[in-house]
Design a protein around this nucleic acid. Structure first.
Length: 556
RNA sequence: GCGGGUGUAGUGUAGCUGGUUAUCACUGGAGCUUGCCAAGCUUCUAACCCGGGUUCAAAUCCCGGCACCCGCACCA
């Protein structure tokens, strides 16, 4: 099936292997003219949901990021492992998991290799010999700036999400300090996959659309949940079982943990149906605990049934406050929001008051940061000498270097780190799924039943015969449609049937044919791809007729 | 990365026990024709994945690389 869909997609200009004249490169594809148009239409539809309907803010940030970002995000640790491969059975393992000493993950490749040899580590699968561990990083590394002092290590981003986290303070101000709000980004991600496969499903450079929705963790109810409360979806929770039920019911029965997650399941379903995913081949599956990403607390994937089997195309993850906290920790900046109490409350507060006369001589230049850490701590939980950790360094603050002060204070609110729900869409996979779900074959006749809103070409215009003025008339209609912003194609080659077939194969929903009656009465036939039915419509105002048809077939 | 399979015009293929100008069909272009669903006729364009070896001679045999497919491993 993949080969058949790919053959059509390639022949007609949807997808081409990239760098083909140099032999190609695994994991890289070009979108041809129709593919690029289809991709743009899918993205425009996505934008209609997230930016227009939900009012989220779209940003656009660099693909290349300095190393610090991924140290904070966890991708460096998570993505860079020392891997050893069994030379007999081909199994690969994280080398630091095979040796018996503690903190083996901090060893260098050479040290680890020495340790492996010392312990005589063999392949846990088959007992075969293992190779020297080599670092494997799923991120593309490069250098930013000229060689020398100013040179910095950079990486191509493996996801677009980090920008929304780093821009949180500006976004928070942009939304005039009110939660919840969302920020989105549509762009490229890069992962140096060991073994990219299956065409568009595992790329090394891929398109993604991600939304980061920031909200107050004390309130996971979702305003506007009504919109999708009654939507029926097939759910596979990680506690087992398969349920077809409404999202309202799923939340009531705690199959989906909160309204916010359920809302984006509903929105995702609606978006996918609109671009032409087959509802019967769509389900939502909750991640098992062990497959959860390092940042995620809960995750529901939209999966579609392809010829490869069930395939993830969207992930809706509860990233909690993981990312914002990490960036706070690594950057030292505050990424908090403020929750205002309904009424200001008078509170008895306990504060740690550092004594700089003592701290100064003890910690010298670090004293200020130690003091700041102390102020952050909960005064009621400390006593005696206090241990403070800053960036892995340990400071012991003696009992006499601080006092605890009790005071009454009017408190009108408090700062907190927002939680994040992240709907993340793999555009390339979605595009392929749309192609496969739209692909119909009747004998040798192939039709791509693309929905009008995403079809690269909306209408084909033909003269029944390329003569007697029919061709000029058809060309004129084509020009008028194009001028009205409707993507139209003129074709007068071959028989009329062949031209319909060409349009069917690239998913064009409508065809207009100028015939001899058109010369007399100013009407043309309008043919619908899926029903093959024709009706006569007036040439005058044809732009409106076509654009109305496209709109009527759009859900949102 | 490991194991297995495959690689011939845009697509699908024949040739592959080495030997003329590499077969056929579809698609595509041009022309004729054609009064609504890949009609017909004429004609044209267009390929041996790349590199090396064996040989008088390689699409064909051998080696290496690359790409694709399947399985394993990997997969925020």
């Amino acid at each position: 099936m993949w080969e058949k869909v790919f053959a059509v997609a390639r022949r007609r200009g949807f997808i081409w292997p990239a760098f083909e004249i140099y032999g190609g490169m695994r994991g890289f594809y070009d979108y041809g003219p129709l593919g690029a148009a289809l991709k743009r239409n899918i993205i425009d539809t996505w934008r209609r949901y997230y930016v227009f309907q939900e009012g989220m803010a779209e940003i656009d940030s660099p693909n290349l990021s300095p190393e610090d970002v991924f140290r904070a995000s966890g991708h460096l640790d998570k993505f860079e492992d020392l891997v050893t491969v069994c030379e007999r059975c081909g199994s690969s393992f994280r080398a630091d998991h095979l040796v018996s000493i503690e903190n083996a993950d901090s060893l260098s490749a050479d040290e680890l290799w020495q340790e492996m040899k010392k312990e005589g580590v063999k392949c846990p699968e088959c007992g075969g010999p293992l190779s020297k561990p080599e670092p494997f990083n799923l991120m593309f590394r490069t250098k930013i700036g000229p060689k020398g002092k100013r040179e910095r290590t950079g990486y191509l981003r493996p996801e677009t999400a980090q920008a929304m986290f780093m821009d949180f303070p500006s976004l928070y101000r942009y939304f005039r300090e009110k939660l919840p709000f969302g920020a989105v980004q549509i762009g490229k991600g890069f992962r140096n996959e060991i073994s990219p496969r299956q065409g568009l499903l595992r790329l090394r450079e891929f398109n993604m659309a991600e939304a980061e929705v920031f909200f107050d963790p004390e309130n996971k109810r979702w305003p506007g949940f009504e919109r999708y409360r009654d939507a029926e979806v097939l759910l596979l929770p990680n506690t087992g079982g398969e349920f077809r039920m409404s999202l309202g019911e799923a939340v009531e029965k705690s199959i989906i943990k909160n309204e916010a997650l359920a809302y984006f399941v509903g929105l995702t379903r609606s978006f996918l149906l609109e671009i032409g995913i087959d509802e019967k081949r769509l389900r939502f599956r909750e991640h098992l605990m062990e497959e959860m990403a390092h940042y995620a607390d809960d995750c529901w994937d939209a999966e579609v049934l392809l010829s490869y089997g069930w395939t993830e195309i969207v992930g809706i993850a509860d990233r909690t406050d993981y990312d914002l906290r990490r960036h706070m920790q690594f950057s030292g900046e505050s990424l908090k929001a403020r929750r205002t109490f309904k009424e200001a409350v008078e509170m008895e507060v306990e504060e740690i008051v550092p004594d700089f006369k003592k701290l100064g001589p003890l910690f010298k230049g670090d004293a200020k940061r130690v003091a700041e850490e102390l102020k952050e701590m909960d005064a009621s939980s400390v006593s005696g000498d206090i241990r403070v950790d800053i960036d892995g360094k340990e400071y012991i603050v003696p009992e006499d270097a601080y006092t605890i002060r009790k005071a009454k204070k009017k408190v009108s609110g408090e700062d907190f780190v927002p939680h994040v729900i992240e709907p993340s869409y793999g555009i390339d996979r979605i595009l392929y799924a749309v192609l496969e779900h739209s692909y119909m074959k009747d004998g040798d006749y192939r039709i791509l039943k693309l929905r009008p809103s995403v079809a690269p070409v909306k209408v084909g215009v033909f003269p029944l015969m390329p003569k007697d003025g029919l061709d000029e008339m058809a060309m004129d209609i084509h020009r008028r449609l194009s001028a009205a912003g409707i993507r139209s194609v003129y074709d007068d080659s071959g028989s009329i049937g062949r031209r319909y077939a060409r349009m069917d194969e690239i998913g064009t929903p409508y065809c207009i044919t100028v015939d001899y009656d058109s010369l007399k009465d100013g009407t043309v036939t309008l043919r619908q791809r899926d029903s093959k039915e024709q009706e006569r419509v007036a040439i005058d105002g044809i732009e409106g007729v076509v654009s109305t048809l496209i709109k009527e077939n759009t859900i949102n």
